[in-house]
Amino acid sequence: MKLLTCPLNGQRNISEFTYGGEYHPMPDPNTTNPRRWAEHVFFHDNAAGVVTEWWCHTASSFWFLAERNTITDQVIRTFDTSEIFNQRVDFVAPDIGSQS
């Protein structure tokens, strides 16, 4: 059985976890363009090497981040999302006129 260390619950069997996809920093909503935004939402790098990924400990519904080497499947570290998401991001949608 593979083991993964949840930052909240400690080391657990991998069957208690769900993979949540690659983590990408969000583009600045005030300066980005639609193409960049679409890439952020829909595209994945699928890189060979060390990547940052979303994982969820299903038993506690706790989402966290993991740095994993996709070539060796070695998990370098797992960490709490507050390490990255530590301030509120406010933005307003640009006015693109009436949709009627």
């Binding site: 619950n9 657990r12 069997n13 208690e16 299903t58 038993a59 506690s60 706790f62």
Partner: peptide, 10 residues
């Protein structure tokens, strides 16, 4: 918070 008989449990 773990899996107990394949059921999520506290």
């Amino acid at each position: 918070q773990t899996s107990l008989a394949k059921i999520n449990a506290v």
